[in-house]
């Protein structure tokens, strides 16, 4: 069972990496933020501006996983290859979690690269801000993967999944910016957020896995 999950995950990751077009969106937010900071705000020294930029970087990278999640289920269903996987002698949950396992590392890796690039490019360094921004990015990656998976299993096409999932970007940006000060100022807020996201993700994954089994 575990073996099958790993095989699916490896296969899925291989498929993603062979289609570089899916990875392009991960490069766009950090490049835009770094360039706009250097061009529009040269000589800026307010730490809160840098913090906001790092927060937005984290918030913008996470939704870029949506096209991957959409292709994983709705896309494969559209192409007819999902049924082939379902006809393998493995449990549907192995297929589901295998695909999930392949999706998660990508935004996380890009998050580290993007936040580190921002630090290098702007010269702003505050470990607490860096760590909290990366953590937020990782949590938002889980949130977006969960949202996209949930939608991907319920709609018929990858395009519809993308369109619906991307509506959540605005919500994420608004909420992120409204609660930014609380998030960076209080130590317990990231902890609570982590617990809430992990619980919600586990619940959504379990529900999605059940839906997938019945499809």
């Amino acid at each position: 069972m575990k073996n099958a999950t790993w095989k699916i995950a490896r296969h899925e990751l291989g498929m993603i990496l062979r289609e570089p077009k899916f990875l392009i969106p991960f490069f766009i937010p950090p490049i835009l933020l770094i360039v706009s900071q250097l061009v529009l705000l040269p000589g800026e020294d307010d730490p809160w501006v840098f913090t906001r930029m790092m927060l937005n970087c984290a918030l913008l990278i996470a939704p870029m996983v949506a096209p991957l999640a959409a292709d994983s289920f709705a896309g494969e269903r559209e192409r007819g290859s999902l049924e082939l996987l379902m006809l393998l002698p493995v449990k549907p949950s192995s297929i589901f979690y295998g695909k999930l396992l392949a999706l998660i590392p990508l935004p996380i890796v890009f998050m580290f690269v993007a936040e580190s690039s921002y630090v290098v490019a702007t010269g702003f360094w505050d470990f607490a801000v860096y760590a909290k921004s990366v953590l937020l990015g990782i949590l938002m990656s889980f949130v977006f993967t969960g949202i996209a998976l949930f939608i991907s299993l319920r709609v018929k096409t990858a395009r519809a999944t993308n369109q619906i999932a991307h509506l959540f970007i605005f919500l994420l940006l608004i909420l992120g910016n409204v609660f930014a000060r609380a998030y960076y100022s209080y130590a317990l807020v990231p902890l609570f957020l982590t617990v809430a996201v992990v619980c919600a993700f586990a619940a959504v994954s379990a529900m999605s896995s059940k839906t997938f089994r019945l499809k």
Partner: peptide, 8 residues
Amino acid sequence: NPGTYPRL
């Protein structure tokens, strides 16, 4: 109509 993985 089984699907394929075109890149494989």
